[in-house]
Nucleic acid binder design. Structure first.
Length: 273
DNA sequence: CTTATTCCCTGATTGC
DNA sequence: TGCAATCAGGGAATAA
């Protein structure tokens, strides 16, 4: 499940490989009829990409944004099992290959996706896709006070707010659990019940958690690989995520798994209150 | 406006 | 051994 640290690792990996390159040919498998969310016809996305030079690779939340020479933006979201890899020799086959984008140096960007939940768009303005996202948690402008204001008007569990992309962009199930452990806050606490001190702790914890994960080039619990097809290593360094019934590194209590906001949630019943 | 629930997808896992 | 049910989870859609 690529979240902010994984998508950012992919972005940084793609940057030196594709910026300045031109897409020669794009193709989308008829087996993936929902992959192209816009334009309505996948063929129009392929035709629109062909001949376009890639001017930059950006990221907003969990979305990758490819700036094209004609001013339009190719937007890619990997959802659960999507993988976007740069292959110098082209994509070849592969059972889960859903789309391929051949570049002017003979290499290809290959989009594989076991569960077919990934989406892509070709739009005039990226805001058409990412316009409703909340602030970037790692931006300078996102302060503890901002987080406090966000949480203050929500009665939902604090974890549900962390997962809400319209509240904060880029946090998914792994890093919500990890940040809440880091902040010593119980995932079921109503968001508005956090004290000022707890809000400051959570703000710091979110940043620390995401930066650490990027330092490990992301977590490869399942399918995630970076732009060159390499796994990350942060799944070896998590404190609670998928550590059910294992000892808390802080206090030795057994990590518990519960459901919060419809998502499996891992926490230490001793450390997190 | 909010929150909760369902659906999409398919391989892996669990239960009988 | 086989087969069905369940689970994983991001985000859109829908319900309340």
């Amino acid at each position: 499940m690529p979240e902010l640290p994984e998508v950012e690792t992919i972005r940084q990996g793609l940057l030196p490989l594709v910026v300045g390159r031109t897409v020669v040919e794009a193709s989308v498998s008829p087996e993936a009829p929902r992959l192209v969310a816009w334009p309505p016809r996948a063929d129009d996305l392929c035709r629109g990409l062909a001949g376009q030079r890639i001017e930059g690779v950006g990221r907003r939340g969990k979305y990758l944004l490819f700036a094209l020479a004609d001013g339009r933006t190719w937007v890619v979201h990997l959802r659960m099992t999507g993988v976007l890899v740069y292959r110098p020799q082209g994509c070849g086959g592969g059972r889960f290959l859903r789309a391929s984008f051949r570049l002017d140096n003979g290499a290809s960007l290959c989009f594989a996706d076991l569960r077919k939940m990934g989406r892509m768009w070709l739009v005039d303005d990226p805001a058409q896709v990412v316009g409703k996202l909340g602030p970037e948690p790692l931006s300078e402008g996102f302060t503890a006070a901002d987080l406090g204001r966000l949480l203050a008007r929500r009665s939902a569990p604090v974890k549900a707010v962390l997962l809400d992309q319209g509240a904060i962009a880029g946090i998914g199930n792994i890093y919500a659990d990890e940040a809440l452990f880091e902040a010593r806050v119980h995932p079921r606490r109503p968001a508005s019940s956090l004290s000022g001190e707890e809000v400051r702790r959570l703000h710091k914890a979110v940043g620390l958690t995401l930066v650490r994960a990027m330092g490990d080039r992301g977590s490869s619990f399942d399918h995630y690989v970076d732009a060159r097809g390499e796994k990350g290593s942060h799944h070896l360094n998590v404190k609670v995520f998928r550590r059910t019934d294992e000892a808390c590194f802080e206090c030795g209590s057994l990590i518990q798994r519960i459901k919060v906001a419809g998502r499996s949630t891992h926490f230490c019943p001793q450390c997190q209150v």
